[in-house]
Design a protein around this nucleic acid. Sequence first.
DNA 1: CGGACTATTGATTTGCGTCAAAGATTGTGG
DNA 2: CCACAATCTTTGACGCAAATCAATAGTCCG
Lengths: 240, 240
Amino acid sequence: LFLARLMHRSVLTAQEQSAILALPTRAHIYAPREDIVSMAQTTKHSCLVGEGLAARFAETASGNRQSIALHIPGDMADLHSVVSPKVVTPLQAFSRCLIYEIPHPALRRIATEYPAIAYSFWRDGIIDAAIVAQSVLNLGQRKAPARIAHVLCEIATRIGAVRPKTFSFDFAISQPQLGEVVGLHAVHVNRTLRKLKTEGLAVLDGKKATVLDWPALIERAEFDPAYLQMEPLDFHKPLP
Amino acid sequence: LFLARLMHRSVLTAQEQSAILALPTRAHIYAPREDIVSMAQTTKHSCLVGEGLAARFAETASGNRQSIALHIPGDMADLHSVVSPKVVTPLQAFSRCLIYEIPHPALRRIATEYPAIAYSFWRDGIIDAAIVAQSVLNLGQRKAPARIAHVLCEIATRIGAVRPKTFSFDFAISQPQLGEVVGLHAVHVNRTLRKLKTEGLAVLDGKKATVLDWPALIERAEFDPAYLQMEPLDFHKPLP
DNA sequence: CGGACTATTGATTTGCGTCAAAGATTGTGG
DNA sequence: CCACAATCTTTGACGCAAATCAATAGTCCG
């Protein structure tokens, strides 16, 4: 699973691939709303999402929560903890989650041994950061309907569920949780979802999302998938 | 300059330090509002900010701009381009900027040769990403006064200008530009700055910021510098 | 079956956007 | 070195998007 994600983003040789497949893992199940990684601790492993929906969080002193990043199956939610083990954004399960823990020493070992793996880890973090950067744009400049539409477009694209016009995909998120993602209150999320439905764009039922008109939805969201950087980069070729 | 920034975040040996100091650089001056790195191109070098204030940007299809990250002298504004050369967020000069360009092949060479340098580059990008993550929280959950106060606190801390109560630091930013940073319109930025001034917290004159009451300002901003991760990490020690 | 969380809807308030217009600054070219 | 253009700062009036308060069903889980 992790290998597939990495190879979406970087080119790896057979030897490097088997080094990754040989990584030790420990499976864990988390209930909805349960913390996977808590604040203020120092981690010794990274978390690969196997099933479910997880999110990285931040909160203000007054207790308002904000989701920083959503993580779908295949995401290495905190690969960054290898080089930044002090937790500054906790990780929580949105729905029931299957998590594979991979110890830092093993990750450090293969990154030191194979430079291309080190680069692929680095690149993975950079692309995740580019996704977070887009949500700065989303929160800073878009109004509620476009904001929610953009999240739907991004998840649909990352999951690989996109079809020409109509399709569904797993998106187990409640309206209050979606509010934490888009920086809106639950009540307003509800009204905005109604609007998207009556406009014939998309529907969300708490378990899955249904896109009714993909071209219209991406237009409403002003969605351009370039920032997801879907083409793998090859670190074996020397640069000019 | 770059070395100092890296060593704020990671521990490097004398040999690694001299490898970084030996990197070739090319200096360049950019005028305010000039693009340093433009959209849709593929870069062959990274940009170290020598003097001035630079910002990474994103914009919506309708042309609204949003600053993703502010870069102060000493920042390697796009070290990430080494592993992600396709530009998805252009870099622009806010004030007159002195930029040192460092070619990617040279950076790749020392990262491949010295694993600790590769880790320090990776960590640098992760910490920059943590700063962006905080601005997601800032935009999503805070109102105008706290939002602007938080930006002031962050820059003061990153520059290292903090004093017990009152102090000034270079912050050459106009009100419309600050609006792009905090996701507010210039008119509202103006009113909010007035409010911060009458509350005796801080003043901004377009060239520099003056903090009038640091403890009160960090309280207003709910600022906690933990996410800046000011303690260097040592990648030479093996993990247990 | 009970408790907690979620979805939905209405009424009201408020923060921020928007429009407009007058000075103040800054930079540039003649 | 001055004059003009462009940008920035500041202020007022008004409108809208979203927060907030409140209350009722509905739904899931144990």
